[in-house]
Structure formats: structure tokens, C-alpha cells
């Protein structure tokens, strides 16, 4: 094994370790912020695995979309709602939720294992097909056009949904303010002025 290969193998296991540690942090910590940061670490590890597999494009997209967009939106949500001292309540004993969580996690795990065992793994080199970005882009826009467009419809629905939620929320907020005004005579923050 040459020096390069040793480095590459070492990096591969480092990335795997990153994914595993990130995932453990994600599910074990009691602080929501740490959960998201663990997720970000796991995403970075995944990006590293893409890098090891030789796809710079997927690596950068993984960082850009998952770490740069999704994690940040999640963190943003948490920052609006939680403070660092606020940790998950340990005393919750909701057996139904626990059962559902275990059930769905086990099912997903078993399905994935079944897929892994069933697939006939061919090394990418032996596959001898075109994996360039140009080719991938053409496949998306010609062969898998329908799937591609469906994903964009999902995004559209999400955006419309969030707009509807945001609109409703603001009206409710105004109603609460009006309610407070009528109940107490003035809005609680007014005395600051």
C-alpha cells in the first residue's frame, strides 16, 4: 500500500467515525442545540465519505445544502424557541411514543439491512459508466425528469404551507395583543416607552 492509500484509508475511517460520533451526539444529548450540531457533524462526515468516493460535487452539495441550509434553519428554529438552560424533561414516560419510535427505527434499520444484503455491490470502476456532473444533469432533466419535477412540487407545497402557517400565526398574534389590550388596559410592553 502506498502512502497515499494509507492516508485515504485513514481518512475514510475518520469520516466514518465522524458520522457515528455525530449520530450518537444527535440522539443521546438532552440539549436540542447539541442535537442539531451533532447532526451537522454527521452530515460533514457523510460529505467526507462522498469525497473519499471521488465525487467532489456531491461533497460540496452535501455541505452546502445539509450543513449550510438545513442545519441552519433547524438551529434558527431552536434559537427562537429555547434557551441553553432548557433541557428535555427526563420524567416523560410516554410509552406510546416510545413504542412508535422503537418500531419505526427498527423497521427502517431492517429495511436498510435487507437492501444492503440484497444488492449485488459492483465497484464503481468495474461499473464502467459515466458519472460526470454533465451526465448526471442530463439524466435528471431527461430520463428522470418526472421525479425531478415531483421533488420541486414537494418544495412548492412546503413553501406554500409555511406561508399559510405564517399568515395565520400573525393574525393570531394580533388577536392576542388585542385581547391583552382589552384585558389589562394596555399592552405589557407599553410601559417601556
Amino acid at each position: 500500500m502506498t502512502f497515499y492509500q494509507t492516508i485515504a484509508e485513514g481518512l475514510f475511517f475518520a469520516f466514518i467515525l465522524l458520522v457515528i460520533l455525530g449520530s450518537i451526539l444527535t440522539i443521546r444529548t438532552k440539549i436540542l442545540m447539541h442535537t442539531v450540531l451533532g447532526l451537522a457533524v454527521a452530515f460533514l462526515g457523510t460529505a467526507g465519505i462522498y469525497f473519499y468516493l471521488g465525487s467532489m460535487f456531491l461533497t460540496l452539495m452535501q455541505i452546502l445544502i445539509y450543513v449550510g441550509a438545513i442545519c441552519i434553519v433547524l438551529v434558527f428554529g431552536i434559537m427562537v424557541g429555547y434557551t441553553p438552560t432548557e433541557v428535555a424533561d427526563k420524567t416523560i414516560k410516554d410509552w406510546r411514543n416510545k413504542f412508535l419510535a422503537i418500531f419505526s427505527a427498527t423497521t427502517a434499520f431492517l429495511l436498510l439491512i435487507a437492501c444492503v444484503l440484497k444488492t449485488d455491490w459492483v465497484p464503481a470502476l468495474a461499473e464502467n459508466r459515466d458519472f460526470s456532473i454533465t451526465h448526471l444533469g442530463e439524466e435528471f432533466l431527461y430520463t428522470y425528469c418526472l421525479a425531478f419535477e415531483l421533488i420541486s412540487i414537494v418544495l412548492l407545497v412546503a413553501i406554500i404551507g409555511s406561508i399559510i402557517l405564517a399568515r395565520g400565526g400573525r393574525e393570531d398574534e394580533y388577536k392576542t395583543i388585542e385581547h391583552l389590550r382589552s384585558a389589562k388596559g394596555n399592552y405589557p410592553n407599553d410601559d417601556a416607552q
Partner: peptide, 21 residues
Amino acid sequence: LIFIVSMGSVNVMALLVAGWG
């Protein structure tokens, strides 16, 4: 160019961690 942009998005994460921490 994509490399630069994706690194820029990680930088925002650092500001968030600093602010929250």
C-alpha cells in the same frame, strides 16, 4: 466557485454556535 460558497455557509454555523453558546 461552489467550494467557496459552501465554505461560506459553514461560516454562518460558527456565528450561530458562538451566539448560542
